[in-house]
């Protein structure tokens, strides 16, 4: 029997690592991966709660989150490719103008 608090603490740690990645890295791709890590941490907490409460809603919600994350990645990576085409770099420090 694993107490649910262990899962929640693990989820909090993973979320914080993702937030740290968004704050300290300058590579847009790594920042994007950190966002995925944060989504995953939230999913883990939701599945843990759904397992404790013996309810399906958490799992179904996680399924929808995964689908939305897939859509988000498709559009986000297209944007990153487009930014790379105009700036020749994916350093977020260089994305400081609204017009390419």
């Amino acid at each position: 029997m694993v107490p649910i608090n262990y899962y929640i603490i693990l989820s909090a740690i993973l979320f914080s690592i993702g937030a740290l990645g968004v704050l300290i890295r300058r590579n847009a791709l790594i920042i994007f991966m950190s966002v995925e890590l944060m989504l995953n941490a939230a999913n883990l907490a939701m599945v843990a709660f759904s397992s404790v409460l013996k309810s399906f809603s958490g799992q179904i919600f996680v399924f929808f989150v995964i689908a939305v994350a897939a859509a988000e990645v498709a559009v986000g990576l297209a944007l990153i490719v487009e930014i790379f085409k105009s700036k020749r770099s994916i350093d977020v420090d260089q994305m400081n103008s609204m017009k390419g």
Binding site: N43, L44, V47, S50, A67
Partner: peptide, 19 residues
């Protein structure tokens, strides 16, 4: 694997295939 431990095999498989 955590999802499998939590008794959510469907989500675990979605995680592996999609993510």
């Amino acid at each position: 694997v955590f999802y499998l431990l939590l008794g959510a095999p469907f989500i675990a498989m979605s995680q592996v295939t999609v993510y």
